[in-house]
């Protein structure tokens, strides 16, 4: 049976149900069914990282996960990180460091960095570079992206402190 069927998960804190063919990727389901178009498709074969979303705390390539595999999971997309009016510390650091130009790869890099810094707010430059090497950017040359993520670490440390208290 290849016809559409419902899949339930949580996106950016809200419950969602999508009714999709089994072949549908999570990225396509988010974009086309939920109209969360901030998640971009740059290659659809798991190399460019533009479609990175966070599933149960782990950054994953949205084109390499079936929507059906996300049943019951908690998903965070770029739209869940902050709004245009209320950018997060990470997003603000990107703006400050000119860490984006065309903006197409940006969502995937933000979600990747968010997942990383949430787990590893003390990640060093080499670790950040290693992690971001799973995301392609053709505009910036990566330097400002690394600088922005380095700067944003402090905000995640604060979050960790609050959580600890």
């Amino acid at each position: 049976m290849t016809s559409a069927r419902p899949v339930h998960f949580t996106v950016n804190g809200a419950a969602a149900t999508v009714t999709v063919e089994p072949r549908t990727t999570l990225a396509d389901a988010l974009r086309n069914e939920l109209r969360l178009t901030g998640t971009h498709l740059g290659c659809e074969h798991g190399v460019c990282g533009a479609c990175t979303v966070i599933v149960d705390g782990a950054a994953v390539r949205g084109c390499l996960v079936l929507a059906a595999q996300a049943e019951g999971r908690e998903i965070t997309t770029v739209e869940g990180l902050g709004s245009a009016a209320h950018l997060s510390a990470l997003q603000l650091a990107f703006r400050k460091h000119h860490a984006l130009q065309c903006g197409f790869c940006t969502a995937g890099i933000l979600t990747t960095a968010h997942a990383l810094l949430t787990e590893e707010p003390h990640a060093d430059e080499d670790r950040i570079r290693e992690v971001i090497s799973g995301n392609l950017c053709r505009c910036t040359g990566y330097l400002p992206i690394i600088a922005a993520i380095m700067e944003a670490r402090i905000a995640y440390r604060d979050v960790q402190c609050e959580a600890a208290q």
């Binding site: 178009t37 901030g38 997309t77 739209e79 990180l81 245009a84 950018l87 997003q91 984006l100 903006g103």
Partner: peptide, 10 residues
């Protein structure tokens, strides 16, 4: 341009 790209609203 940045606010819209950073928030996924491009």
């Amino acid at each position: 341009e940045d606010a819209r790209f950073l928030s996924g609203s491009g």
